[in-house]
């Protein structure tokens, strides 16, 4: 038996090299795996908060309604009642946070209206749509229609 051990000494040395390698791996792993990994699942728990803490670019309708009562009232009476302010006026979270910092620019009425109301066979049949060229001959939409309260 002792003889066997002596004859296999090189194999024991090899096994020790492997054990040392394995132990080093486990130690390094222990030290390097990010804290919080695996708390909720197989991922860094902090990634949830990091995804959450980005600032919003669109303020959301509630923020607009807080100040712009007049326009909100107008809008509620017309067929644009379901359209959020920022759908036409663009993202305004910076304006909502500090009204003086970023003033909204008035949208280009022709391009804006056509974006939704230019006729297209793929649009739902009951959605109001026109071939703008035939309908107005290039005149601005808001010379007849009030965008906050368009007549149906």
């Amino acid at each position: 038996m002792r003889n066997h051990v002596r004859e296999a000494e090189h194999l024991i040395r090899l096994a020790l090299v492997f054990l040392a390698g394995g132990a080093a791996f486990l130690l390094i792993r222990q030290a390097v795996v990010p804290p919080g990994f695996g708390v909720h699942g197989h991922y860094r728990a902090a990634a949830l908060e990091e995804n959450r803490l980005r600032p919003a670019v669109y303020a959301g309708q509630a923020a607009c309604s807080d100040c712009h009562e007049e326009q909100v009232k107008q809008r509620a009476a017309g067929s644009h009642r379901g359209v959020a302010c920022e759908a036409c006026h663009g993202p305004l979270a910076r304006h909502a946070a500090d009204p003086s910092a970023a003033a909204p620019r008035p949208p280009d009425p022709v391009a804006l209206c056509r974006r939704c109301h230019e006729a297209d066979a793929a649009k739902p049949k009951n959605f109001p749509q026109v071939v703008a060229q035939d309908h107005s001959g290039g005149e601005a939409c808001n010379s007849c229609h009030q965008p906050h309260r368009p007549k149906v």
Binding site: A56, G60, V83, A84, C116
Partner: peptide, 21 residues
């Protein structure tokens, strides 16, 4: 990300906010 930074603050997603219909 389903606008995770918005929906966890009580806002809707940007796409839903901007959808006119």
């Amino acid at each position: 990300s389903l606008c995770y930074h918005r929906i966890t603050k009580g806002l809707t997603t940007a796409c839903c906010e901007a959808c006119p219909t």
